[in-house]
Nucleic acid binder design. Sequence first.
DNA 1: CATGAATGAGATTTCATTCAT
DNA 2: GATGAATGAAATCTCATTCAT
Lengths: 201, 201, 201, 201
Amino acid sequence: MADGLDTKAVRTRQRILASAAREFAARGFDGTSLRQVAAGADLTLGSLYFHFATKADLVAEVLRDAVDFALARVDQAISELPSAAGNAEVLSAAVRAHLHALHESRDRGAAVVRVMDRASTAPVAAARAHARRYITRWCTLIKSAQCDNVVSSGVDPRILTDLLLGAMNATVGSRQLAPHRVDTIAVTVCDVFLRTAASPG
Amino acid sequence: MADGLDTKAVRTRQRILASAAREFAARGFDGTSLRQVAAGADLTLGSLYFHFATKADLVAEVLRDAVDFALARVDQAISELPSAAGNAEVLSAAVRAHLHALHESRDRGAAVVRVMDRASTAPVAAARAHARRYITRWCTLIKSAQCDNVVSSGVDPRILTDLLLGAMNATVGSRQLAPHRVDTIAVTVCDVFLRTAASPG
Amino acid sequence: MADGLDTKAVRTRQRILASAAREFAARGFDGTSLRQVAAGADLTLGSLYFHFATKADLVAEVLRDAVDFALARVDQAISELPSAAGNAEVLSAAVRAHLHALHESRDRGAAVVRVMDRASTAPVAAARAHARRYITRWCTLIKSAQCDNVVSSGVDPRILTDLLLGAMNATVGSRQLAPHRVDTIAVTVCDVFLRTAASPG
Amino acid sequence: MADGLDTKAVRTRQRILASAAREFAARGFDGTSLRQVAAGADLTLGSLYFHFATKADLVAEVLRDAVDFALARVDQAISELPSAAGNAEVLSAAVRAHLHALHESRDRGAAVVRVMDRASTAPVAAARAHARRYITRWCTLIKSAQCDNVVSSGVDPRILTDLLLGAMNATVGSRQLAPHRVDTIAVTVCDVFLRTAASPG
DNA sequence: CATGAATGAGATTTCATTCAT
DNA sequence: GATGAATGAAATCTCATTCAT
């Protein structure tokens, strides 16, 4: 069966993950019932458990997926920059990539933003650790930008990272945004956070 | 019988609201059981219903309280400024007031941040409408600041407001912060969002 | 309210315990659903949980009750013997008391016999420890009887105890026995286990 | 194709029966899931159903096996006695054979003891009927022994049979016993139940 | 022969809510 | 004002069973 990439099970899993992201985004962890998730994936409640042993396992995988997705987008955006690009270009490309990842598949993005908080079970804690690596990545970007005075350089980079991610994540609302609106937001974020008027895009 | 009379009922109500803020902040709306709230207020579950008809009513009042608290703090901070103060001073005073309100009674602040999202029942919708007035207030401040070019002036003030509030609210974490740390955050926020280096405090 | 001995809650508790003993006796621990128990106590499933936090807690209390009941009967029977009674009289009185306790409220007895085995949760383990004290009590009786050569004296008293209790407990079947039939069984047990022809009753 | 052919299917069947005996002995009928049984037989849950149509069918066959095993051992032990052997020798040989059968493959023995009780479905009822024939066999032995006054002769042989089997079956605990310990138990049982001091072995 | 995927019923448990006292 | 007792709905999870491949 080659890579095991398109078996029936794999397709069902994807349907479940999509439905779960949708529901978690709309109603949060505790507000989402697995029956809703199953229905959204055209499945019976019992059948969910063939694919995920636990609600915590399911949400953990949703979170991990979303983080991986955003991370890949940011990495790709940066790698596509011309090699002569300065830290201003790097950071604004990252901002644009993060925002587009967040809004493009809005369910995954909103799910992370709503759920990541505080769901104490073990698998979710693991996903949170995964997400922390994402934050660390951003902190590195911020530090580099501070060296070139691209962003405020006299302040704690950790705080600055929190503010930037907080500002961006706050833009994910209840309904999908058109791509050009996401671009507008990206420009605004850069306009605020970047000292130079490096207009992205 | 005046308004805020200190009867037993009123004191109990306050205890309930405090406990509810604590629990909602820690566990979210769906994650909090009314039994926990009651226990935290040294009460039996049944007794809650003498004071609040519904879980939604209770959370709505918690939210309204928190919004009113922040609104009062911001208004007061602004009114205490010398009459010659410019928009930069006004905005940075508001930032400081908002952040202090958020962290000072962290439970209320975190409760708003965690719960406001999307709890669809009617009373919560009312509280959300109440909160929208708070956002509008901030939008007004932003617009005035844009006139003086104190903040980015070429961008949509609504988006800018969302970014600012999003950034500030993202700083409320799981544990209380010492006041001086809150001040540091306030300085950072102003440093980022205000074009002039108007240091608050 | 005096002793709290006859409140509504206490009466409901008794009804639950009776129903639980009945069901556990008939269907075993895993075979019994709490819905059946609730129905047998004229209660809704949810209401059970006001009185017992857990299925394990419930069964543990049933077991403890049954052991306490048998222990009390055996103690009382022995204490009512004339002070000149020898070990033969003591042992045969105990046999009679145990068998009558077992069959008199058959549900409790059968519940112990069927469930005590192996239900691994913590509260049941506690109940099992409680039951072990009962076995120890019998072992003491057996040892005394061995001293007087009332029962086989050349054998391990622990094994002898197991055989005696095993033989007696095997007599609890699916339906209630008339008291005179229980007496017949008691006579038979004594006839087998006691070396002297000490006829009980 | 003869009868006990050693095809793959037959070997798998044996593995299933062994695993089932183990699980039923450890957790009882309702406490055992077919998935556990399958796993213990290195099989998938679905594959079980190729060999057994129903959980009840499976447990029935386990019970029948165990009864047949014990019956064969008892019969063989008796048939190996010298033809001049009296009823005392016969009974004590039977006791030894039963106890060894019970403890030798402890899983089967314990499975019978734990499960035989009351699993109301039809196939189990059939197995219980099968077991009743085993009890009847013992009752016959007891009656013969009563004729020779080898055991208590003035008592109901049915009751005496129950006591004897109950005593012996009570010795099967949670862990396997060394053979010499089983011999000790057999001696004790004979010492108690047989009027003459016919020491077995 | 065996497996993977799905189903539907039922189990324990939690919880918002009600109401007599 | 407060409590204790009860209810009914819903949630997570387990399990015997089926069937296409």
